[in-house]
């Protein structure tokens, strides 16, 4: 007996079928776009939460020059009031160079900074978990220290939260559109595959195959196609993200580029991205199955 191991589940659909290279390319592009979009959505979500947490845990006292009080006295008074205020963990004046550093991304390096009347800033850290009467602190500073104002970052918080939420919504909408487009493509490709291999389907149907058997052959074919296309798209997306992160970090990057959000900014984001090919495969599989069963249902 010939003991050669036959590929026991050789696809009934020829490997180079209708759906070959073109469909792989389309699915890979869809997966690529989905990875980039998902990366952006995850990063936006993470950044929004980091910003909000960071800003919520601290406030800033800004001391503008005032004719009524000298600079050193103004700072000492502000520190005194702030440090004893209930719920304040620490208050630290920023040096002039630190304040300059905050302006560098916007104004660049140069003599212009030296001439600017940069206000004195005090970084105030709140005790985590404690309620702090920031309105009261702001009023106390305003009343007792001429030129002092308290910035509790609430305006920034609200704007950032709103920006992040709307950007995330746009990202999810794009992902939904990509999914719908992938569904439509797989439906079209399955129907084309059924048409191209109508004879195979008819023969298998006539020798007594149940619809689910034929559907399983198609769905397996399309699942692997979806997975392969998805992995290619993922690989391209990771290469793109990696290249972009290198570019952003490089010295040749445009001014301020390092402050722009990177599309994937946490290692665990890559784990989520790994789901994209798997989901692409599953979408292709179930779409093919439903399409084939619907078409076969019209056969005698």
């Amino acid at each position: 007996m010939n003991m050669r191991v036959l590929a026991p589940t050789t696809d009934l659909m020829p490997p180079d079928s209708a759906s070959g290279t073109t469909l792989h390319t389309i699915v890979a592009v869809m997966s690529f776009l989905a990875c980039l979009t998902l990366g952006a959505v995850l990063t936006l979500s993470r950044m929004a939460s980091e910003w909000t947490e960071g800003l919520s845990g601290s406030v800033t006292v800004q001391l503008l020059p005032s004719p009524q009080i000298g600079g050193e006295d103004q700072l000492a008074e502000a520190l005194r009031i702030t440090r004893v205020w209930p719920g304040i963990f620490a208050a630290r004046p920023l040096s002039r160079s630190e304040a300059m550093g905050l302006l560098k991304p916007w104004l660049g390096e140069g003599d212009v900074l030296a001439d600017l009347p940069v206000p004195q800033l005090v970084e105030v850290t709140l005790t985590p978990g404690k309620q702090v009467d920031l309105a009261g602190l702001g009023k106390a500073l305003k009343d007792q220290v001429p030129g002092a104002t308290l910035d509790d970052h609430q305006r920034w918080n609200r704007e950032l939260a709103s920006f992040a939420a709307s950007s995330e919504a746009v990202g999810w909408a794009v992902l939904l559109l990509i999914t719908l487009a992938t569904l439509a493509i797989v439906i079209f490709a399955t129907q084309a595959g059924l048409q191209a291999h109508r004879e195979i389907v008819e023969v298998v149907h006539m020798i007594g195959a149940r619809d689910v058997f034929i559907a399983s052959e198609f769905q397996r074919h399309f699942m692997w196609l979806g997975l392969r296309g998805g992995v290619i798209g993922l690989a391209l997306a990771i290469a793109t993200l990696f290249a972009s992160s290198l570019m952003w970090d490089s010295r040749d990057a445009p001014v301020g580029a390092q402050y722009l959000p990177q599309l994937v900014s946490a290692p665990w984001h890559y784990v989520w991205l790994l789901l994209v090919p798997a989901i692409t495969g599953l979408i292709a599989m179930f779409t093919a199955r439903i399409t084939v069963l619907r078409v076969l249902g019209r056969m005698p």
Partner: peptide, 18 residues
């Protein structure tokens, strides 16, 4: 109506496979 991409053995086995 043989399936050209399958071997003789696979073609003949098709009814048993289904």
């Amino acid at each position: 109506r043989l399936l050209d991409h399958l071997t003789v053995l696979e073609n003949v086995a098709l009814p048993r496979r289904v």
